[in-house]
Amino acid sequence: MGIRSLLRSLRHRPPLHPALQRNRSAFADFNQDIPLEDCEFAVTDMEMTGLDPEHDEIVAIGAVRIRGLSIITGDVFHTYVRPQRSMARPATLIHRITPAQLQHSPALAGLLPGFVDWCGQALITGHHVGLDMGFLTRACRRHLGGAPATPCVDTMRLAQAWERERWERSFDPFQPTVSYTLADLSARYGLPQFRAHDALEDALQTAYLFLYLVRKLKGGGITTLRGLHAAGRSWRWYL
């Protein structure tokens, strides 16, 4: 973003929304040393019209809650989102969401407060979560007056940490064929398979992957958020 665009966005930014005020209050004294069993995680996936947060838009949000290291099946967030601009055909081919499905869906500005409140004190968790958070942060700044304070957990980083640990224990430490896509990791670990490129089903897929990785990493002594964060950050090839 250029200087002029940044100044223009700041000039038109709305006052901080009450949902974001509650969000920032919830994480004002965030304690990374609490046991993983005592944490909540909002496992989230978003479908977008493309990969550029400055020009593309969110068209679906799916999220499931993990509490006590178990998926709370009755506590989900799932919605389609009406974009401001027409959706390009390649995006429709990937996630199979048609313009007709979105025509009567709510706009993102009206959905964001509910999603932020639904997450509550849960940590947002996702596969390559930085991409989704880029879109979410930009949308919150535009419509809610600021960025959310919610810490994030990336299952791709955790998978890289777990694979590194496996390699170091094996006789063959070099396995360049490992794929870190959500679908390939889930198949590699024998997890239940869900439909790809569907926001809610991808969130479920990520939740199963997250719980698998947490249990594996806990076996190596990682029992707190601080340890989980350190395990993810330690993967030196992650971009």
Results as ranks from 00 to 15, higher is better:
Ile61Met: 12
Leu158Asn: 06
Gly190Ser: 03
Ala183Ser: 10
Gly130His: 11
Glu47Ala: 08
Leu225Ile: 12
Gly130Met: 12
Gln160Met: 15
Ala91Lys: 11
Glu37Leu: 11
Leu191Gly: 13
Phe77Gly: 01
Ser25Asp: 13
Pro151Trp: 02
Pro176Ile: 05
Gly50Ala: 04
Ile61Ala: 11
Asn23Thr: 07
Ser105Met: 01
Arg4Asp: 04
Val214Cys: 07
Phe210Pro: 11
His55Met: 08
Val76His: 02
Ser186Val: 07
Trp235Leu: 02
Thr206Ser: 10
Arg188Gly: 02
Pro113Tyr: 04
Ala159Trp: 05
Cys140Tyr: 11
Ala63Ser: 15
Glu40Pro: 07
Phe171Glu: 11
Leu191Val: 08
Arg169Ser: 13
Arg166Val: 14
His78Thr: 11
Ser5Cys: 06
Ile71Pro: 09
Ala19Asp: 08
Arg22Ile: 01
Gln32Thr: 14
Ala207Val: 04
Leu136Ala: 07
Leu69Tyr: 02
Glu165Leu: 09
Thr223Lys: 14
Leu7His: 03
Gly219Ala: 13
Phe174Thr: 11
Arg157Thr: 09
Trp237Gly: 08
Ala26Met: 10
Thr92Val: 15
Ser186Asn: 14
Ala183His: 10
Val76Asn: 09
Phe171Cys: 00
Ala63Asp: 05
Arg138Ala: 09
Pro90Gln: 10
Pro90Gly: 11
Pro173Ile: 06
Gln175Cys: 14
Asp154Phe: 02
Thr92Tyr: 05
Arg65Val: 05
His128Pro: 02
Lys218Trp: 00
Arg8Lys: 14
Asp75Ala: 05
Thr177His: 12
Gln103Pro: 00
Leu69His: 00
Ile97His: 12
Cys140Leu: 06
Glu168Trp: 01
Leu7Asp: 12
Arg24Pro: 01
Leu20Glu: 03
Gly190Trp: 00
Leu69Ser: 00
Gly145Pro: 08
Arg82Met: 11
Ala26Glu: 05
Thr177Trp: 15
Gly50Thr: 06
Phe41Ala: 02
Ala161Leu: 03
Ser186Pro: 00
Gly145Val: 12
Ala230Arg: 15
Pro14Phe: 07
Gly232Trp: 04
Glu163Ala: 15
Pro99Ser: 10
Pro173Val: 09
Gly50Cys: 04
Leu6Gly: 03
Pro113Gln: 08
Val116Asp: 01
Val64Pro: 02
Thr44Leu: 14
His55Ser: 14
Val81Ser: 10
Leu131Ala: 09
Ser86Ala: 13
Leu20His: 07
Thr73Tyr: 07
Met1His: 04
Arg233Glu: 15
Leu225Thr: 09
Glu54Asp: 12
Tyr189Lys: 02
Arg142Tyr: 05
Gln84Ala: 15
Arg166Glu: 13
His127Tyr: 06
Pro173Gly: 03
Thr150Gly: 06
Asp29Lys: 00
Leu102Arg: 10
Ala122Trp: 05
Val153Asp: 03
Ile72Leu: 15
Ala203Leu: 06
Arg13Gln: 15
Tyr80Ser: 07
Pro151Arg: 02
Arg188Lys: 13
Cys39Leu: 14
Leu102Gly: 02
Thr79Tyr: 01
Tyr180His: 12
Ser9Thr: 11
Gln101Ser: 01
Leu102His: 05
Val178Glu: 06
Phe115Tyr: 15
Ala19His: 03
Ala230Asn: 14
Asp29Pro: 00
Val59Trp: 03
Met46Thr: 15
Leu225Gln: 09
Val116Arg: 07
Arg157Asn: 08
Leu136Ser: 00
Arg215Asn: 14
His95Glu: 07
Trp237Cys: 12
Ile34Asn: 01
Leu191Gln: 12
Ile97Gly: 06
Ile66Lys: 01
Gln160Pro: 01
Arg233Val: 03
Leu112Arg: 05
